[in-house]
Nucleic acid binder design. Sequence first.
DNA 1: TTAGATGCAAAGTGTTTGCAGCCTG
DNA 2: CAGGCTGCAAACACTTTGCATCTAA
Lengths: 142, 142
Amino acid sequence: MESENTFKKLKEKGRTATIQRLAVLECLRESHGHPTADELYQSLRQQYPTLSRATVYNCLQVLKEAGLIQELTIEKDKARFDPDPEPHHHFFCRRCKTIFDFQVNCPVAGSGCVEGHQIEEVQAYFYGICESCLKEEKRAVA
Amino acid sequence: MESENTFKKLKEKGRTATIQRLAVLECLRESHGHPTADELYQSLRQQYPTLSRATVYNCLQVLKEAGLIQELTIEKDKARFDPDPEPHHHFFCRRCKTIFDFQVNCPVAGSGCVEGHQIEEVQAYFYGICESCLKEEKRAVA
DNA sequence: TTAGATGCAAAGTGTTTGCAGCCTG
DNA sequence: CAGGCTGCAAACACTTTGCATCTAA
């Protein structure tokens, strides 16, 4: 069962699987489109009215350290979160602001050693205009 | 001459090549290690005591739009700047916090079209421990 | 029981904005 | 002379911190 893995990974880091942490993780997994901490907070607040913003930040930090999620700095002003902890890349549409997973076979996708430097993590961010926005632009011109 | 290119690129965007903008650009070019806006401000302040922080931010923004520099979001809390506007990637050492250019032959390094999406920019960030920090760690163990 | 987690508010940090005055083309 | 640019301070947005209270192992 998936939730056993969650417990295990948290325990490995000496952290407790609290209601809040599980709720944040589940909310992130259900959400589409790499939400921000505040988006998760706003969404969770409906079900857990006493939940505080600081707790959401704390939970995300802990979940990240446990390797259950990953954090994206694809936008400079706010962090976004991805429920998939496996290494993969992202595309950011500058027009509709959508972020989606984007796999290119980058030679150094995960960890390893390159030129004597030990690589622990790779984040590749692709910025541009997504297919549907391109189509919309084409339609607007016509 | 290089400075002619600077003037030309600014003019193309309808911007003036002010003393401050040229100073920020030169300071960035002279600096090593991808400084933050505030580091540039602190450095420039000695030569231009009346220079304001807001102007540094403005200059960096304008220089970026003119394609003379690029901005890195390799750290989530602050932007860093690179005097080289050509597409290339970066390594961030989590131990000594150094950032250096890091070229891997990524199949999609510059612009182009992938799966219908138009790519304008790519930023790949490699996080880990740099060679010299690894050596130091090894020495500490021995 | 007790270390750790939460919730709240306040503080912190990097960045942006509003606006008067200045400079430059 | 007019538009754009600077400098200053205040405003902003996201994130972190301090601390009392609470909770889970």
